[in-house]
Structures are given as structure tokens and as C-alpha cells.
């Protein structure tokens, strides 16, 4: 807990002032800051709803005999508007949607849009978290190495960062994803591999400042191994800006995945993702607007939630913004 407390305070510009601050544990302090930020609270609220929906989607749509089958094709009920009753005279009982009603309508193959949206929720979540997980791990390891080792390790890693930042990232992601065989894992890996440089930069900057702090010097004097100093003692103190960037990167990863799906390179069918549903709906924007409105709104709200929460986190963790 003590370590967490210092993670917030150490990044303050004037170390003398810190002694005057009341000692509050890091998490509680963070919560106190977040509570005053109404946008962050909205973000957090939306996020909890989203997590709940994704979990519900996982339970309802996965497995051999899902309660709501997102891949069930019903050719009698194509492009039905929301709140339409299923065609019960033709459909066998096991083919009918839950409660016999299409809450969000059906698509051109008569698949239940609600079931597909629910499946898309956890697909989006998976893509967001796994790709950002990859980029956070890469960013922390490379940034820590660069910041702590200095010299040629630092210059090599920072050169790589410079090179990575020169690629037009969306075009590069599009190229790689299009050339590789279609799979959701490829998308996550490619997004993860292209989005680590900003995190590496933040971690490096934190490490350059932390390296001269007393606790690091003390750990070195005690003869701890370099790996232990870096990843056990220094990383927890450098994690704050990473957390902010990671939250916002989840938002952009979800947006990237939906853009890729929209262009036809995303999650391969028959699996649903929100970008997929929107892409299918673009042929019917005048006849079946619910297809793209449902999926587009879902993407918007989720990305908005992550962005708002990330920005709230940034403000709560930034001591210079606190008094504002």
C-alpha cells in the first residue's frame, strides 16, 4: 500500500511540497479525485454497463446450444425492424429468438441483431484488452530497459520507437491484417505490436526520473539484481501514466477493430463484431437503418466510456491539474 501511495506523489514536480501532503493510500486518493470528476464517473458507469453486457453476451451466445444463437439464419424473417414478432407459423420452436421477438430486428439473413450485438460486445472487449495487454507489456519492458540501462540500449530502443512512429499506423495495420489469413488473433497481435511506442516513451521518461531517487539507489546499494530493481521496485512507481494511456488505447483499439471489420478485414464471419454488423448494414442504410444505428451507437458509447474514464484518470493522477 505504501508503494502505491508514493506512485502518485513521486511524479509531483516539487519534492519539498510532498511532505506537507496528507498520507492517503494511493487507491483511495485516486477514488477521491475521480469522484469529483463527473465525466469520469459517467465513463465508469458506462463501462460497468458495458462489462455487464459483455459478460451476459458471453453466457447467452456461447456454447453448443446457446440461449440466443447469433448465427441462426432465418430466411423467413429477413430485415425485420426492431420489436417485430418472429414468424411463429413457419419457424420451429428451437429456431425462434428469445421470447419470440426480435428486440433489435434482424439482418439480411434473418439473424437476430440483438444476439449478434451481444456476441460483438465480448469480441470488442477481447480485442481491446488483449491488444492493449500486448502493447503494455512490450511498452513497459522496452521503456524500462531504455530508461534504466541508458547508453546504446537506450538509443537503439528509441530509434525503433522513432521508426515505429513513422509508419502510417492505420494503413500499416490494414496492410498486415489484409495479407495475413483472417483471424481475430492476428488483429489483436497486429494492433498490439503497432501501439506500444507511446507507452515505451512514457515509461522511459518516468524511469529517467526514478533512476536518481533514493529508493533505487538504496536498492542498488543492497545489491539487488537489475531485473528485480526495474520490474519489482521501479515499474509500480511508473505505472500511473501507463494506466491512462492504456485506457485510452483500449478505446482506440476497439475503434481500429471496428474500422477494420467495416472495411471487410476484421473478425471473419460468421462471428459477429460491431464493425461487422455495421458493415453488413451499410448496404441497407435506407431500408434497414437499425442495423448500422444499433452497432454504431454501441461502438460510440463504449469508446466514449473508455475515453472519458481515461481522461478522468489522467486528471486525477496529474498533480498539476488537481487544483483546477
Amino acid at each position: 500500500m505504501e508503494k502505491n501511495g508514493s506512485s502518485v506523489n513521486l511524479s509531483a514536480p516539487q519534492p519539498e511540497q510532498e511532505l506537507l501532503l496528507p498520507q492517503v493510500s494511493g487507491l483511495r486518493d485516486l477514488w477521491r479525485q475521480l469522484r469529483t470528476n463527473s465525466l469520469a464517473l459517467w465513463g465508469l458507469g458506462l463501462l460497468s454497463i458495458f462489462f455487464f453486457i459483455a459478460a451476459a453476451g458471453l453466457i447467452l451466445t456461447e456454447g453448443r446450444q446457446p440461449i440466443m444463437d447469433p448465427e441462426k439464419v432465418r430466411l423467413v424473417d429477413t430485415l425485420k425492424p426492431p420489436l417485430t414478432k418472429a414468424n411463429e407459423s413457419v419457424l420451429a420452436p428451437e429456431d425462434r429468438p428469445l421470447f419470440g421477438i426480435y428486440l433489435l430486428g434482424t439482418d439480411k439473413l434473418g439473424r437476430d441483431v440483438l444476439a449478434r450485438m451481444l456476441q460483438g460486445a465480448h469480441v470488442s472487449l477481447l480485442v481491446g484488452f488483449i491488444s492493449v495487454g500486448i502493447s503494455v507489456v512490450l511498452g513497459i519492458v522496452l521503456g524500462a530497459l531504455a530508461g534504466y540501462s541508458g547508453y546504446y540500449v537506450d538509443s537503439i530502443i528509441m530509434r525503433v520507437v522513432d521508426i515505429m512512429l513513422c509508419f502510417p499506423s492505420f494503413f500499416l495495420i490494414l496492410t498486415v491484417v489484409a495479407l495475413l489469413p483472417p483471424s481475430i488473433w492476428n488483429i489483436m497481435i497486429v494492433i498490439g505490436l503497432t501501439s506500444w511506442p507511446p507507452i515505451a516513451r512514457f515509461v522511459r521518461a518516468e524511469f529517467l526520473a526514478l533512476k536518481k531517487q533514493d529508493f533505487v539507489v538504496a536498492a542498488e546499494a543492497l545489491g539487488l539484481s537489475k531485473l528485480k530493481i526495474m520490474f519489482v521496485h521501479m515499474v509500480p512507481n511508473a505505472i500511473a501514466p501507463v494506466l491512462v494511456t492504456a485506457t485510452i488505447e483500449v478505446a482506440s483499439a476497439i475503434l481500429t477493430e471496428s474500422s477494420l471489420s467495416f472495411l471487410g478485414f476484421g473478425v471473419p464471419p460468421p462471428a459477429a463484431s460491431w464493425g461487422n454488423i455495421l458493415s453488413d448494414g451499410k448496404e441497407f442504410i435506407f431500408d434497414a437503418p437499425w442495423l448500422f444505428i444499433a452497432s454504431g451507437t454501441a461502438i460510440l458509447l463504449t469508446v466514449l466510456a473508455f475515453n472519458l474514464f481515461g481522461e478522468g484518470l489522467r486528471e486525477a493522477l496529474n498533480p498539476r491539474l488537481r487544483e483546477r
Binding site: 478505446a251 474500422s259 448500422f292
Partner: peptide
């Protein structure tokens, strides 16, 4: 947060 393709449609 608004996907440009959604807004476009």
C-alpha cells in the same frame, strides 16, 4: 469516440 464511418452514414 464517434467512428467516422458511422457518422458518415
Amino acid at each position: 469516440s464517434l467512428p467516422s464511418f458511422f457518422l458518415a452514414y
